[in-house]
């Protein structure tokens, strides 16, 4: 019997798409016609010098915090998985402590260190001091932000990394040991690269979260993207447009980072025989494939194969 195969129809998808289109049209309409958004003002301040200055600070602070945090975090995760009980306990205690303290409190703590310890010194415990410094000018706002947020990232990233390391089959380590590879080499060359596919998505989350979380530095008067726009609207009272300026920048940055995450995931999927979660396709193809109704469905593109 050579009957034609008729795929299951999905009328509900068309109906919901139509409803959604109407809602999107309404949203666009209100964005355009509501004059209180003051898009002209948004455009005017988008590349304003102090906004761009704040943007730069947000960018490099996020980059520095993530880089330092992850270096520490990988170390903390590796310590947690060692047989050495001292390292294991130390790692556990660090993660427990840092995760318990709200980042805002930590930031203020580093910033106000001088009021807690006016003087820090190096020497024999309970004995002679060799060097000592006054802490009054040790931590500027930016440095306090860098240290506090880096420790925060270290604690959270170490748990992400640890999860990834645990997902690598024990046989990989044994095979490497049997070949006579040293522990450091096994970690760096064999286990960590295989842990990356499960580390990257969660890390992308942490990175994008941190990009926006850096805005808490405004409490210690560090002028990041959000605080810069606040400073501007404190003078001209154009609150909404300036918040929109900051928001648009965050949207742009998040978009770039999400695209970057796609390529990193694809890189670490090599040899897995599945080229990442979406198959060996380009970003554009993936995008078109995920356009509901108009592109083919993800399954048809072989996303599950």
């Amino acid at each position: 019997m050579a009957a034609r195969l008729v795929p299951l129809r999905h009328p509900g998808q068309w109906a919901s798409a139509l409803a959604l289109l109407v809602l999107v049209a309404m949203l666009v309409n209100t964005l355009v016609t509501n004059r209180r958004f003051q898009w002209g003002v948004v455009g005017h301040y988008f590349l304003n010098a102090s906004i761009v200055h704040g943007l730069e600070l947000t960018l490099w602070l996020t980059a520095a915090v993530m880089a330092t945090g992850y270096l520490l975090g990988i170390g903390v995760a590796a310590m947690r998985l060692r047989r050495n009980p001292v390292l294991r306990s130390l790692s556990f205690a660090f993660v427990w402590l840092i995760r318990s303290v709200p980042p805002l409190v930590q930031l203020l703590f580093w910033y106000e260190l001088a009021s807690l310890y006016p003087r820090l010194s190096l020497g024999v415990p309970f004995g002679t001091e060799f060097v000592s410094v006054r802490t009054a000018h040790l931590f500027s706002g930016v440095l306090a932000a860098y240290v506090g947020l880096s420790l925060d990232v270290a604690a959270f990233s170490s748990e992400i990394v640890r999860g990834g390391l645990l997902s690598v089959d024990r046989g990989q380590t044994e095979a490497a040991q049997a070949l006579g590879l040293g522990n450091a080499r096994i970690f760096r060359r064999i286990v960590l690269p295989q842990a990356m596919p499960s580390i990257v998505p969660a890390s992308g989350n942490l990175l994008i979260g941190m990009l926006k979380a850096t805005s808490i530095v405004s409490v210690i008067a560090v002028q990041d993207l959000l605080y810069s726009s606040q400073l501007v609207y404190n003078q001209n009272f154009l609150v909404i447009p300036l918040l929109l300026v900051a928001t648009l920048w965050y949207v742009v940055l998040t978009t770039v980072l999400s695209a970057g995450q796609f390529f990193v995931e694809r890189h670490y999927a090599r040899g897995s025989g599945r080229h990442g979660p979406y198959g060996p396709r380009s970003f554009g193809k993936l995008f078109r494939g995920n356009l509901p109704l108009f592109g083919r469905s993800r399954d048809a593109l072989g996303g599950l194969s």
Binding site: Q172, A175, A178, G182, Q194, G271
Partner: peptide
């Protein structure tokens, strides 16, 4: 580690490094 380098081992599940 030095001693192991002189003893080769082949595993039931191969344990090749899949990313290499």
């Amino acid at each position: 580690t030095r001693q192991r380098a002189r003893i080769g081992m082949v595993f039931q599940q191969f344990n090749l490094f899949p990313h290499l």
